[in-house]
Amino acid sequence: MSLSLSQYLFAGASFVMAVLIVILLGRLIVGPTIPDRLIALDTVNTLVSGIMLLLGAVYDAVVMVDVAIVYMALSFVSTLYFARHLEGGV
């Protein structure tokens, strides 16, 4: 498989995003309150879906973009569920 230069750039950008996720784990573990952790989790979800979109271009696989769309929807639902739980609803 031979990649074009832009595909190498996409791969590099997704690597940097993965490093950012590792940095975010610090806030996820330390975070003094639960909402702090949820915010870190929400940002991790956004970055993961960004990585999936970029890797879809790297591997020439549109399926990964579909998975990213479903991932966004599911992470949105899980955020809403956590928020509702925090309010004391569920």
């Binding site: 909402p35 579909d66 309010e87």
Partner: peptide, 26 residues
């Protein structure tokens, strides 16, 4: 597919943030 992904992101992200802010306040 990327256009649709972008629309989903643009709707879901601020709504989730709003839900988190409200939950944190309550």
């Amino acid at each position: 597919h990327v256009v649709i992904g972008g629309i989903v992101l643009l709707i879901s992200n601020p709504t989730g943030a709003h839900a988190l802010a409200r939950a944190a306040y309550r």
